[in-house]
Computed example of a mutant assay.
Amino acid sequence: MSVESLPVLKPNDFASDQDVRWCPGCGDYAILAQMKKVLPDLGVPRENIVFISGIGCSSRFPYYMNTYGMHSIHGRAPAVATGLKTVRPDLQVWVITGDGDGLSIGGNHLMHAIRRNMDLNIILFNNRIYGLTKGQYSPTSLLGAKTKSTPMGAIDNPLNPLSIVIGAEGTFVARTIDTNLKHMGAVLKRAAEHSGTSFVEVYQNCNVFNDGAWDYAKDRDTKEDTTLELEHGKPMIFGKNRDKGIRLNGMDPEVVQLGKGITEDDLLFHDERAPEPSLAYLLTRMRHQDGFPEPIGVFRAIESPRYDELINDQIEQAKASKGPGDLEKLFTSGDTWVVE
């Protein structure tokens, strides 16, 4: 069926008949709404879309989408999605996870899915807390965070999701914020259109167990000074008056004031297509608590060989040279033993 002959879908066509059961005010609602708004523009039939999740508040997502889906087990959504995409490369596969599900028990699965560059879309909801299990600290909780499992303050160094993804050679790496709806929609659309693994971190608020974790990046009075919207090919400028920027001092980024001899040409220009990931990694290390604006948008977007294509190419080559194969012959080939 051609794209032209597909029925015209609307956001409500992607809404399931299930009651959405997140806490009132949860940032997950905004992510769900934007996903339903973006999908009709992709021209993919609902029966060719699959949402796979692990365990956590975010992992209820497949229930609320009128597509195929699977609520899998804790941390294993990337592994399940890898298997599905390998045998059904025609499907558009989304992985929905959280900072606890994806970066603790699921960290190893996540890392290997990214390095393989499967054609998956991974959305990680980061609220710096375990929400479903009622407020324990997570792998992204800040040092000193007082939670139900760290009453004296967390003493683990927090993981930086995007630094891990860049380190695993992620080919599409982005960040957005649950309250920045237009930005989130644009990022999700670009992620879906990317060939290979797309990874999007969403700063998402848990208003019950970690309310206000991202206020500095959301508040109308501060967000222009605390966030930096990345635009390919453009200088890194931010601030309410667009009068501040980022430049390199040797290998270190620094915040500078435009004027007084400093022009846009002195600033760092964003190149999301750079094959060398060093500068993209550097951007992931810029943190509000260190006096930097935190970048949002697309950090990296490059093309690279895909595991799902390569493995299916090998299967076809094997069939061409050795035939389609016979399981019965395989089971009885080589050394065998008979147990009396």
Rank of each mutant, 00 (worst) to 15 (best):
S104M: 11
S149F: 11
N241G: 05
V3T: 09
T179Q: 11
M35L: 15
V8Y: 07
G102F: 09
V208K: 07
S104D: 09
N12P: 01
D19H: 12
T140L: 10
R60H: 09
I166W: 08
R300T: 07
D90W: 06
V255K: 09
K218L: 09
T86R: 11
S163Q: 15
Y29K: 06
D17T: 15
P295Y: 06
S58T: 15
S141I: 07
L268V: 14
V298Q: 02
G250A: 01
V200G: 02
R60K: 15
V187N: 01
R115M: 15
C57P: 09
G27L: 08
M286T: 04
L124R: 11
P293Q: 08
D17Y: 12
D271F: 14
Q257T: 10
G54Q: 05
D178F: 15
P11N: 14
P324C: 03
D19K: 14
D28K: 03
V338T: 14
G261E: 10
A301V: 06
T336L: 04
D90Q: 11
T176F: 01
M184S: 00
K234L: 09
H288K: 00
K218E: 15
V80D: 08
N207P: 08
G75R: 01
K182I: 12
I129S: 14
G54V: 12
G75H: 10
I177G: 08
H270S: 10
S53F: 05
V80C: 13
T171Q: 11
V80K: 01
L132V: 04
C23K: 04
T179N: 13
N157V: 13
L330A: 13
D101K: 02
K148L: 12
R46Y: 03
D243R: 03
Y130W: 11
P293C: 10
A77Q: 00
P7Q: 05
L32F: 02
G325Y: 06
E169H: 13
Y307N: 15
T336R: 15
L110D: 00
D221I: 02
C23E: 11
D243Y: 03
G239V: 05
N126L: 01
S59M: 02
E201A: 06
M65C: 09
L124K: 07
E254H: 09
Q136L: 14
P161Y: 02
S16F: 12
T140S: 12
V256H: 00
A213N: 06
V3C: 00
G261A: 13
Q136E: 06
N66T: 02
G259R: 03
N121F: 01
G54N: 01
Q317S: 05
F61E: 07
K148H: 15
A280R: 00
